[in-house]
């Protein structure tokens, strides 16, 4: 039986199959890109948000936190931190955020420590704006509750 299992047929299946699925994946990607403008909160993507994202990256926040569940699992989820800490009030959120960032590290013995990143007021506001923008992306109702 096995002698009629030819290598060229196996190869054709590999080539045909992967081409088929790459095309399908590209098609789905195209469709997703059509859908994204309504979902990714791009209308609120201001200069300040863009700068906040850069700060987020250049301080490697994802090295401890998660954002939409991706990152390290050492510190809380921040994709919905705006929802968790703002009470729907921007001023309150920014105030809370600045106080928090400036109080780090807590230096409580044995507790997980967050470094002091020495960001100025404007930078902290940009970072807060980025987190607010992230909270506005349609994540299909994830996370299940406010704790993230």
């Amino acid at each position: 039986m096995a002698e009629r299992f030819t290598k060229s047929m196996a190869r054709n299946i590999y080539l045909g199959g992967s081409t088929f699925f790459i095309l399908l994946f590209l098609g789905l990607t195209f469709d997703t890109m059509q859908a994204m403008p309504e979902r990714d909160n791009r209308e609120n993507l201001t200069e300040s948000v863009a700068n906040g994202k850069l700060l987020w990256e250049e301080n490697n926040c994802l090295g401890c936190h998660t954002l939409f569940g991706e990152g390290a699992y050492f510190a809380p989820e921040l994709g919905n931190v705006y929802q968790r800490r703002s009470m729907g009030n921007d001023e309150a959120f920014i105030g809370y955020f600045k106080a928090w960032m400036n109080a780090m590290p807590t230096n409580v013995p044995g507790r997980r420590q967050m470094p002091q990143f020495n960001l100025n007021d404007q930078e902290l506001e940009d970072l807060a704006a980025f987190l607010k923008y992230a909270n506005g992306i349609n994540t299909n109702d994830w996370p299940p509750n406010v704790e993230g």
């Binding site: 290598k7 590999y14 399908l24 994946f25 990714d40 569940g69 994540t139």
Partner: peptide
């Protein structure tokens, strides 16, 4: 080898979708 990698790509390429659940892309 051919059959195994064919299956890996057939399932794995669209399987990327399991990362698109909660990061913005459609349902």
């Amino acid at each position: 080898l051919y059959i195994i990698i064919a299956m890996a790509l057939i399932t794995g390429i669209i399987g990327t979708g399991h990362h698109f659940f909660w990061i913005g892309p459609p349902e």
